[in-house]
Amino acid sequence: MLESLYYTSTLFKVTFFLYALALAGYIIGVFRKEKFWGNIPFALFTIAFLACTVLIVDRWIEAGRPPFKSFYESLVFAAWTTSLISLVVEYRFKVRLIGFMSAIGVVLIFLFALTKRDVEIIALPPALQTWMFIPHVISYFLAYGALFVAGFTAILYLALPGGVTSHHTLGQQSRIDFSAATYQITKFGFLFLTAGLLLGAWWGQNAWSNYWGWDPKENWALITWLIFAAYLHFRNIPSWSEKRLAWVVIIGVAAIVFTYLGMDYLPTAGDSLHVYSGD
C-alpha cells in the first residue's frame, strides 16, 4: 500500500491527507462541545472535498475522458459523492457525528482505492463512449453517496436511539432524530438510484440492443433498488419499529457494497458486461 501511495499523484496524496486530517478533527470534535471543534473538522472536510474535486477534474483532463472507468477512479468518485452528501447533510442537520462517520467511510474508500491503483490510464471501450455514461454514473454515485450517509445515520440511530443535541448552532439547539434523517436521505438516494437504474437500461438498449439482460450487476442493482423500495413501504406498517427500519437501510447499504465490489464472487459474473478495469 505504501508503494501505491508513493506512485500516486501528488493531488491524491494531498486529498487523502486532508481527509485524514478532517477525520482527526472529527475525532476531537466528537469529544469536545465547543463550536470551534464543530466548525474546524467541517471546514477541513470541505477543503478535502474541494481537493477531491480538483483530483477528479485533473484526472478527467489527463485521461481525456470522464474518470469513472476503472475501479480506482470509481472509488475516488464514490468518496467525492459521499463527502458531498455528508457535507450537505451535516450542514443541514448540524450534527458533526454524521461528518465523523462519513470521514471514516471516505478515508477507508481512499485506502481501498490505493489497493486498486491504476498503473496505466485505461482508454474507454466503444460501449462507454457515449454521453449517457456521465449521467448514469453520476446518478448512481450520488445515490450511493446518499445511501452510504443514510447507512451512517441508521447506525447512529441504533447507537443513539434517543438522538443527539445539535452542536453547531449554539443557542438554537434542537434534538436530532436519526431515523427521520435516515428517511430523508434515503428518499434522495432512492430517487437517484431509480434514475441511475433506468438510465442504465436506456443506455443498455442503445449499446447492446437490450435494456435488461439479467446480467449479475444489473440484477444486484435491481436487488438494491427493491430493498430500498421495501424500506419505503415498511414505513407504512405502523408497528414496524424504527430499529428494524434502520436495519433494512443497513442491509440495503450492504447490498450496494456487494453490487459494487462483490461481482467477482458470483459464478454468473463471467458473462457480465459490467466489469471495472483494474483489480
Binding site: 435491481l222 421495501a230 413501504h233 415498511f234 454468473t268
Partner: peptide, 24 residues
Amino acid sequence: TPYFATLSLLCIAVGTAVGTFVTQ
C-alpha cells in the same frame, strides 16, 4: 397492504439473487 408490498418486493429481490448465485 404494505405487508404484501414489502414481502413481494423482497421475494423478487431474493429470487433475483438466486439467479446470480446459480448459473443460468
